[in-house]
Amino acid sequence: MDLLAQDLQVTLEGNHILKGVTLEAGAGKLVGVIGPNGSGKSTLLKCLYRQLAPQGGAVYLNGRDLAEENRRESAKNIGVVAQHNDKGFDFTVLDMVLLGRSPHKKPLERDTQQDYAIAKEALREVGLEELAHRSMATLSGGERQRVILARALAQQTPVLILDEPTNHLDVQYQLQLMELVMGLGRTVVAALHDLNLAAMYCQKLCLLDGGRVVAQGTPEEVLTPARIGAVYGVGAEVVSASDGHIRVLFYPR
């Protein structure tokens, strides 16, 4: 499914957070949203998955205005891995992942064998099947993050919105998660703090600064030394790695 955010305007507590942001994610593409802290990344993503309603502009899914859909229908199409998933940790891991099946069920409908099979497969994909019956409260931050991703996978949506999905993860699991996400064949929009992860895995980048889009395009088009210096306030060198992707080397000014 194609996802389009068009001319989004968001003001919160008198602060103009998004100032006419437009972002397009084509079907099956992985789009990275990058930018320094406070640039508007999380606010943009909250508009995409309808936690926030923009004061201006709109979000379209395959040409349909999301604001005109009920939230259950939206939840069948858009899965979310948000930041600060610190609630409900008295659930078992499997119970948490089964919550991803909720949009597909009627009120009070019990989980079926198919729901359990889908949830267990999602846990297998993130490498946590052996922790299915552990309490969420006993997990590390990185394990919790992978469980929340499994919950989104169990939702079986064509679109995924990921807000700092590699937060709390060791390097090994950062790479595994990004490989998994890249191989899903779904439309993915991910806010990423690590520019090198973004360059390695995203087909397109959207660079935000001060609530505006500074640049959009391929990693090679967006991540130039001059632009990185202007937005992040650091010196940068962009080099080509042996895997065919670029890498950004940072140094203080």
Rank of each mutant, 00 (worst) to 15 (best):
A132W: 11
L8C: 04
A241T: 14
A190Q: 02
A137C: 10
G244M: 12
T112V: 10
V234H: 04
Q9R: 13
M182N: 14
R253W: 11
K29H: 07
G235I: 01
E130V: 12
L207G: 10
A53M: 06
M200V: 12
A117Q: 15
A75K: 05
L108K: 11
K87F: 12
G56C: 05
A199F: 04
R110W: 03
K19V: 01
I228F: 00
G56R: 02
A82T: 14
D65E: 07
M136P: 11
Q216F: 02
V214H: 03
D111Y: 15
R64E: 15
K120I: 12
R212T: 15
F89M: 13
F91K: 06
G88L: 01
V33T: 04
S102C: 10
K46C: 04
L61F: 03
E221H: 08
V238K: 06
R101A: 06
G28W: 02
L139C: 05
M182F: 09
F91M: 14
M178A: 06
E68R: 15
L61Y: 04
F250G: 04
F89R: 13
E143G: 10
L139R: 08
G57W: 00
V33M: 07
L8S: 06
A27T: 12
R64C: 00
G217E: 09
G57C: 00
F89E: 11
G20Q: 05
H84I: 03
K19L: 02
T43Q: 04
D86P: 00
G63M: 03
M178Q: 11
V147C: 05
N15Y: 08
R50C: 09
D2G: 14
M136D: 03
K29L: 07
R247F: 01
K19P: 04
R212I: 01
P107H: 11
H133N: 15
L195C: 08
L45D: 06
L98N: 11
G14C: 07
R227L: 15
Y201V: 14
Y60T: 05
A190Y: 03
Y173A: 10
P103A: 09
Y201P: 02
L153C: 10
G217W: 06
T224S: 12
D111W: 11
A122F: 01
N167K: 07
I17W: 00
G217F: 07
L45Q: 08
E69K: 10
T224R: 13
Q174F: 02
N77K: 15
M178S: 11
L23Y: 05
G20I: 12
D115N: 08
P225K: 03
A152S: 14
G183C: 09
V239T: 13
